[in-house]
């Protein structure tokens, strides 16, 4: 039976953490662990979720969990999976890396793990900048978004297409998701958990602090990103791409951007340009 809000594991595996109020990334981690259960080993590189979850003696993961060096998420996962397999332990080794940890510094190790076909679930919680260090541009910061290292013009580059990169490296399964649509996210994690080989889920996870939105708007913004067509829900499976849904209200793109403080550098022309990038 498919996992849903009705039969999701009632236990909380990521609880008491120190993430900012309304943090989308912490929701992505919390829900994934409720799907994967107590035999998930959570592997987190340096980043927001490790910073807020592992301050000895306050340890917020109630399953086996660890921090890896920043660039080493996928490679540490590989070692854990191999070691547990040697011990005959059945487990899900799941990584939670941010956008910088995935698309920038962790990309090489990620490519290696995909290339080896290691049996792992890698989840990128994408808040579109280096939020843990105070909002600096990453390879997944979108066009026009102001960060402390793109302070005036906003990012002049578009996001890397991580899903395409992961697929081209030979992943068994790749999917994009949004914390605004948890049923879809849950379904994709469940699907990933049932497959052998390397699985990748890229979940957009708004950061109220870095995006310039209210703490209660995280879910709304995450939904809207999908609805206006800025964040497409896709799956790559058996070598085929599938679009999960068409944008339901593309006309609201500009409205979606202007309600986020980080896009305040965009003037009318630039806002129009975002439709093309």
């Amino acid at each position: 039976m498919a996992v849903s809000v009705k039969n999701l594991d009632s236990r909380e595996f990521f609880f008491g953490h120190k993430a900012c109020a309304g943090c989308g990334g912490s929701l992505a981690v919390r829900i994934a662990l409720k799907v994967l259960g107590a035999r998930a080993v959570a592997v987190l590189p340096a980043g927001c979720m490790s910073a807020v979850g592992f301050n000895f003696p306050q340890l917020a993961f109630s399953n086996n969990a660890l921090i890896t060096p920043f660039a080493a998420t996928a490679s540490v996962m590989t070692g854990i999976e191999a070691g547990l397999r040697r011990r005959g332990e059945i487990a899900h080794v799941v990584g939670f890396a941010g956008d910088g940890g995935t698309a920038d510094i962790g990309l090489q190790a990620l490519s290696g793990a995909i290339d080896r076909g290691d049996n792992l679930i890698y989840i990128c919680y994408d808040n579109e900048a280096y939020m843990n260090t105070g909002i600096q541009k990453s390879g997944l910061t979108p066009f026009g978004a102001r960060t402390t290292t793109t302070p005036i013009t906003g990012s002049v580059r578009r996001k890397k297409d991580m899903l395409a990169i992961v697929a081209a490296n030979g992943a068994e399964y790749a999917a994009s998701a949004s914390v605004g649509y948890l049923d879809d996210y849950v379904t994709k994690i469940e699907k990933a958990a049932a497959k052998p080989g390397f699985k990748y889920i890229h979940v957009i996870a708004p950061c109220p602090t870095g995006w310039g939105i209210k703490t209660n708007e995280t879910i709304e913004i995450a939904r809207e990103a999908v609805d206006v067509g800025l964040w497409r829900l896709r799956e790559y499976e058996n070598g085929q791409w599938l679009e999960n849904c068409a944008p339901s209200r593309p006309e609201d793109l500009v409205k979606h951007l202007t309600r986020q403080g980080r896009f305040s550098a965009l003037d009318t022309d630039k806002l129009e340009e975002t439709k093309n990038v």
Partner: peptide
């Protein structure tokens, strides 16, 4: 592995297991 960085990372993971 695809680098020494990953060689040591994987060794740590296995040791942790």
């Amino acid at each position: 592995v695809e680098s020494e960085h990953s060689a040591m990372s994987a060794a740590m993971g296995a040791s942790l297991a």
